[in-house]
Design a binder for these strands. Structure first.
Lengths: 228, 228, 228, 228
DNA sequence: CATGAATGAGCTTTCATTCAT
DNA sequence: GATGAATGAAAGCTCATTCAT
């Protein structure tokens, strides 16, 4: 015998739907916040905008995050998922010479990070590190160190195989890192200001760096005078 | 024989002391502004703080700089763009090969800008460019363009003289710029978070970059295979 | 039989009360603003005072009016320009001779504007026009022009029907306007200083003007020499 | 025997010159203040501007007038010199009919007051009466009353001679006053905002008023049906 | 006396945060 | 839980007024 839903049924179904939405809320808010923080910076992003983009009211945001600062921390933490293990595996299984590996690494970084919203996180950290020291330490530990390790292993691979000259890999890391970071930051700060004329083509920029990097790193055999 | 100061002396000394203070004010304000802008960012620095640090009242600041933005521009001019002509002259009169010039440039940058508070300005612009388009445009015009020009001339000198290989100097500029900018940004953002352990030695960092840069740029004569 | 309010009733009543306050706010703020603008002038009235008089906080004012100038414009619309269409309709449907219409217009102006706080707005604009060109332009467009048009139509009606003599209505407008404006200005400036002795009776003042105005305007038939 | 001027001589001569200038100072400041107050209003006129226009420093202004308000009072008092006795005499000796006298009065007012800076004083008083009640009372006594008396006598002259119809001269005064005051105020407030199109020609404006005024006032003999 | 550098109260506007509904 | 009206602490800038010189 079919029964009409009771008030209680309706309430519980509404509650169920609401709880389902409730679970999704933080994620929607974090996504909205990431979008806006990256686009406009922390200070210039208004809490209300984040709420609106997430489709909730201003008050709701503060239900889930006790302050704008806490929201920021959550955004950064959320988006620093370690894709490092995956990359580490790729590095391990890469077949080919180290020059190609290095080139592959920087190109892959551009495709997967540099050109995406993820690079905005780097910019955010650079900008706000001073205001969020704990967060900076966290980022340092979770991103900078593993990232540097990865790069270091690429260099060490080349040195060990005799493809690259001897060098202090601790500092050599920055030969790769600096160009990538500069590009990421540039694209999220002054870059957009020169849109139109004199704009930077990321691919050409990276290739210029990679080419010169390898010219400097690669050991050239005396027998074959620089044919490059 | 000691003489008593004349009436005229007294008057002029009085005026002199007053004028000395007046003349000193802008410099004191600029120093205070640089300090705070670099430490806290442009938006987060309150005009009153700058005034207080310079030992004057809020109103006095606006006696010398018509707005906070003008104050910022003055800071930039004082610390960076005002010095390009001097650097340009140095470049013009440099005697020696282009590799040495390049090395000299990057070292000099470190000593005069990178290691000083002035390097914070670069970080500042990266952080705030999006929110202050007018400042970004100003910086672009007064710092980025002339700075790039300077670097381009160094590269072109080497290419023209046959010391450096042929390369697109437009992008080659970033071979020098990226390492310097990354260092400046790092030292004013995440750098301070790792103070003590694993800290970056700027000199070693720069030398690593310079060495590899020159290895990549320099044309090696086939007759004397990589003598480096 | 009385019924308990349902859940829905309670909810809607709660919302209703909130919304009623929200709906009432603009009106309360406009009333407060009119009061203070008229009493102290536009520039000398602080936004916070308006808010306080309306029983809300400073911030709330800007929730409803995006700036002090917009608040002023809203006050003008509410009290003057928003009522022109009604007046225009009255003019259109008035039955009676043009002398009576003219008399009716000036009397109605006194009752609806001149004797109310709204007349302070005219004084306000006269005082502040020079310092707030945008407001002056707004007032010109929203009040002066439509107001003059209205008066012009009254005159034209009389001329067209042969009741009034031929005259340049463009300037004739001021035959009505000047007396009304002078009264408004007087009552909000020097008038209050002579309160008690020698004070101006507005009705007598206006009637004196109207009577003489009509004596001057009305065409007297030669057959019945001044029957007035 | 000629003597070199002693220090004391020099000082006293300097003192003499300075005292001469000192005597002139208040007048120069008052003139400058009148100019600016009339042009921009009381609040919008900065003390420093007044000082500069008078050719002295900001501090000096406050040496002669203890505050901006005192300066304003002095300006108004200074510029309300009674030219009334002169006008009264003119009125007394005027030969011609009263219509011509009335016409002459209003025209003369325009030439001597309305079109000159002096009319700015009226506008100032209207604008600032609320903020300077004592001043308003003073103005009332020194300007408004004598002025009204003068006008009243013109009307009374016409009524006594039978040229003008019977009317309550107490209120009749405003038949002349309102048009003149409106013109003065208009020209110093909203008038300048419509410069170019629809601007008011003062002469045409006044003539329109005078013509209608006289048509209304003048007794027309039944024998000569309105030939006007 | 005269100066003008210095002051700081005061103004409009913004926005993170709260809380009655 | 969710809402959004309300709050009030800031912040940049102005300018009458003071006072050391």
């Amino acid at each position: 015998m079919p029964t009409l839903p009771t008030l209680c049924d309706i309430a519980s179904s509404a509650r169920a739907k609401r709880e389902r939405r409730k679970d999704a809320r933080p994620g929607e808010l974090l996504a909205a916040a990431l979008e806006l923080f990256v686009e406009k910076g922390f200070a210039a992003t208004r809490a209300e905008e984040v709420a609106k983009l997430a489709g909730v009211s201003k008050g709701t945001l503060f239900l889930y995050f006790s302050s704008k600062e806490e929201l920021f921390k959550a955004v950064v933490r959320e988006n620093i998922s370690g894709r490092f293990s995956e990359w580490s595996a790729e590095l391990e299984t890469f077949e080919g010479n180290s020059a190609d590996l290095l080139r592959y690494c920087m190109t892959a970084w551009w495709e997967r990070v540099g050109s995406t919203k993820a690079s905005g996180i780097s910019k955010l950290m650079m900008s706000e590190a001073g205001n969020f020291p704990e967060l900076a330490a966290f980022y340092q530990e979770e991103v900078v160190k593993p990232g540097n390790d990865l790069i270091r292993r690429v260099l060490q691979r080349g040195v060990d195989s005799g493809e690259f000259r001897q060098l202090n890999v601790e500092y050599g890391v920055y030969l790769l890192l600096a160009p990538m970071m500069f590009l990421a930051l540039w694209r999220h700060s002054l870059g957009p200001c020169v849109a139109g004329n004199g704009e930077l083509d990321p691919i050409a920029y990276l290739n210029t760096h990679i080419d010169n990097l390898l010219l400097g790193l690669t050991v050239r055999t005396p027998a074959a005078p620089n044919a490059s």
